[in-house]
Write a protein that binds this DNA or RNA. Sequence first.
DNA 1: TCATTGTAGTTTGTATACAATGTGCAAAAC
DNA 2: GTTTTGCACATTGTATACAAACTACAATGA
Lengths: 223, 223
Amino acid sequence: MATYKTRAQFVADDLRGRILGGEFQGGTQLRQDALASDYDVSRIPVREALLTLESEGLVEFHPHRGAFTTELSVARIRELFELRILLETHTLRRAIDCLTDADLKKAEDILEKYDKALDSGGEIGNWSEYNFAFHHALYAPSELPETLAIISQLNTKSDRYIRMQLLYTQEIEKAEREHHGLLELARRGDVEQACELLKTHIQEACEGIVAVLEERTTLTEQC
Amino acid sequence: MATYKTRAQFVADDLRGRILGGEFQGGTQLRQDALASDYDVSRIPVREALLTLESEGLVEFHPHRGAFTTELSVARIRELFELRILLETHTLRRAIDCLTDADLKKAEDILEKYDKALDSGGEIGNWSEYNFAFHHALYAPSELPETLAIISQLNTKSDRYIRMQLLYTQEIEKAEREHHGLLELARRGDVEQACELLKTHIQEACEGIVAVLEERTTLTEQC
DNA sequence: TCATTGTAGTTTGTATACAATGTGCAAAAC
DNA sequence: GTTTTGCACATTGTATACAAACTACAATGA
């Protein structure tokens, strides 16, 4: 049953993970032939997978030249996070208004699992998933599917940079504390403070990433 | 030179137009074979075109069952337009801050062409293009490419409903007047008023569409 | 020397052919 | 009569094969 519906979907899911995991430098060409033999499929499902990833902004197609992983400039990263603030506070505001106990419980459960995973050795691998799952649980009650889809899209795009940041800095605990704070404010129905915290939560993550990126570029310039 | 780079792109562009033009009811299955013979290509480029349209939200894929045109509920349309207000006012705010004379001229030119086209017989066919071109011209100076991409995506999704509304009501002139007002406020650098006008401009379009949709559903229920 | 053109090789794009899955109807079982 | 099973057909998904486009490098000419 672990078998995927279609090969194209399988390739898309796996390749997404590889890109987000940092296996490819930004701007790397993804040769269809190589990927096809990697996954032991023909180039057709590979092409379809690449098209899917293009729509997610992880890859760019140039006609007759192929697919390349995208690279975000610092300006674009800032833009992405600014959009996240705009959309996520908007959604949180709505969600808090119609938050049920069951919704809170769900978010709490995710946070708890996540705490345990952290204690028993810092598995960074699926941190992003946990992170988004928690945020999503908080936003879901808003019942704004189109908005959630865009938020998810923005998170995917910024994901690999978040991972990179976590690799260099130890901000997981801080994020974790902020998540607990967020949950508590949501429980109390304090919309304004919750949105304010969410805003700084996202903003500081952005600044962290930018700092790491700029350090790295000055480093490579020195070499 | 009107020849497209790839067949897949050509099919995607043409099919998008057909869907937005209202040729298919919401929920219609798009048979790959039929489309392939329509365009005199194989099913491969058709599939790729459908994947592209899926990423734009015009079509939905169900594995092994095919692609269907999407249908938006009233709630989703409202959500879409609310997102547009949020993102477009945000972008307009930024754009006005760094608006040059050249930018204003561009927007003005579009508006002018558009006026002429209106006078010489109400060609509704490419009204949407003009409309978006004008909005885009206003937002472009903000230099927020990711945001503009999402705005464009939201506009595409709501496009066919806008066309439907225009078909039933005669709101083009009203929209036109509001566009002139928007341009004038932008020229004066009056951010607050411009955003306020933009907000009502989008809001009223939404209400118009919802009204038409609800009228149509009560009509079909009577039959 | 530098720019231009031509050509071989590589890679992408698409057509054709086949495999896998889903759908609908008819016959059988209850 | 209703439900279930099985099979034929239709449609999608994928492999293979071929055509078209791009790249890089060498040869030619100014």
